[in-house]
Simulated scan of single mutants.
Amino acid sequence: MEPRLVGTGLYTPVEAGRLLRVAPGKLSRWLRGHTMKGTRYERLWEPQVDIGDGHVYLGFRDLMEARVVDAFIRQGISAIRIRRAIQVAAEMITESHPLATNRFRTDGREIFLQVIETDEHGQERERLLNLFQKQYEFRGIIEPILKTVDFGDEGDPLQWWPQGRRAGIVVDPARAFGAPIEAKTSVPTSILAEAAHALGITEAAVSYDVSEAAVRRALDFEHVLEPRIAA
């Protein structure tokens, strides 16, 4: 892998779709754009990774962006409105992948951007800006998916716990090039699962110097990902 991709993560639409449980074809359309019934629909955002071979790839930020886009679409918000929200938010907070941050909420109809303002007395307060109406809203809107991502001080996504922290599996672009890993040992789940199938749990644990519990966690995670998603 090229040095510039270290810490970025690199996923094909199939690999990303397997993790996100989103059809690879849908991810490709989001990142490449598509034409339907004579109408051209532009991509939702510019991909983080372009290695120049003409194929679509996702970086870790793309993975997190796609995860939120999928959640918004499931809530009933159209891709056209999401594209516009990304454009407006990117301009407001100068962030190429704004939906990958922890500053968004939705009520199923609108998309809101969390804004921190400082008043004339120097006091900070949190408000929610309706990106479509450019109006502030004060609603208790919660996105459970944010709870499985660790964010930095600036709201940037650092790592993702696909099945929650208790499952012990993490996706971290700074480790194993973004492949899902057993959190305590940093061994990719696919490797531990393959070893377990070939050698058995006990021998796999000995071979990779990890606990049998770590191998079982990897097996459980890979088992959940087994069903294939149609394009």
Rank of each mutant, 00 (worst) to 15 (best):
M1D: 12
P3V: 12
V6Y: 08
T8E: 14
Y11R: 04
T12Y: 00
P13Y: 01
E15V: 05
L20G: 02
R21K: 13
A23I: 04
P24Y: 05
G25K: 03
L27V: 08
S28G: 10
S28Q: 06
R29Q: 12
R29K: 14
W30A: 03
L31N: 00
G33V: 08
T35V: 15
G38F: 03
T39H: 07
T39L: 13
R40A: 14
Y41K: 04
E42H: 09
R43W: 09
W45T: 00
E46H: 12
E46Q: 11
Q48I: 01
V49A: 10
V49E: 06
G54C: 09
Y57D: 05
F60T: 04
F60D: 04
D62H: 03
D62K: 02
M64P: 00
E65G: 03
A71T: 13
R74K: 15
Q75N: 12
A79E: 15
I82Q: 00
A85L: 08
Q87S: 15
V88R: 10
M92L: 15
M92G: 02
I93N: 07
A100N: 01
R105C: 08
G108T: 10
F112M: 10
L113P: 00
V115D: 06
I116Q: 11
T118C: 11
D119L: 12
E120P: 01
E120F: 14
H121F: 14
E124P: 07
N130P: 04
L131G: 11
E137W: 07
I142V: 15
E143R: 11
T148G: 04
D150G: 01
D150C: 03
G152S: 15
G155Q: 01
G155V: 03
D156W: 05
Q159P: 00
P162T: 07
G164E: 08
V171R: 01
P173L: 09
A174C: 08
A174V: 14
A174P: 00
A176W: 02
F177W: 12
V187T: 10
T189E: 06
T189A: 15
S190T: 13
L192S: 04
L192H: 03
A195M: 14
A198K: 14
A198D: 11
A198N: 10
L199Q: 06
V210R: 05
S211D: 13
S211A: 13
S211C: 07
A213C: 04
A214K: 01
R216H: 06
D220I: 12
E222L: 01
E222T: 02
L225M: 09
A230M: 13
A231E: 11
A231I: 10
